[in-house]
Amino acid sequence: MTTPAPVQQGSPTRATGTTQPAVLAVEAVGLEKSFGNSAVLRGLDMTVRDGEAVAIFGANGVGKSTLLRTLTTLTRPDHGSISVYGRDLSKEAESARLWLGAVLHSPMLYGDMTVRENLTFFGKMFRVPDLDERIEELVARLGLGARLEQRARELSHGYQKRAALARAMLHRPRVLLLDEAETGLDEPARKVLDTVIAEHRAAGHAVVMTTHSIERGIAESDRVFVLAGGRIALDAPSSRVTPDDVTDLYSDPGEA
């Protein structure tokens, strides 16, 4: 039986042998995942460097969410390996989760608990030091102040997403994983999300996001991945990619 280690910002290992001497935040090698007879990921390789924002595009059903769930340790790959700051997720998942913060499709909040109770609960699970101060800081940053004592189920979709962001950022993760986080958000909430992404990048941390908003994804990221046929079909700097380059690679996953 292992206990959660206290939140800490350690010294990630530096990748060697790359032309760019950046720390590898995420490295996936040969990822394969099938559900029944349907192969979703087919030997996918990808790397994300520290301080880099990566946008992952792809047609519906191509495996973007599966990839993100695999990176978060929620889904176990059939084959292949993932390391986060050098920690192999198959062996050190618990400690690697300290580096990861995820906002997936569902806000993952207890509907009958207030926003404060939810954040306090998850903060304790991550053993966040000075939890009350951290909650106040995030609440102010994400504009949740007036909603703090409201039950999660009473919040609008936009505020639930803000609360989910607060939950994901409580433990100061170095990698933020966002699965179509902007979906259903109004303009003010979207601006909050953009600010969070920008600040996370500015702090030298990594962001991995999936989105269907191609122009926005390109603008928000340093690098673009297009997922097709269970692999990364395009890996290019955002500055050199146009929306047409992305949509040209969209394919029906059933045809892959």
């Binding site: 206990t3 959660p4 929620l74 993952m108 909040l109 699970m125 991550f126």
Partner: peptide, 15 residues
Amino acid sequence: GDTLDGLMLTPVSRE
């Protein structure tokens, strides 16, 4: 609320 996923994202052992 998919909170089981939320629990599994924490650095706490499944046990």
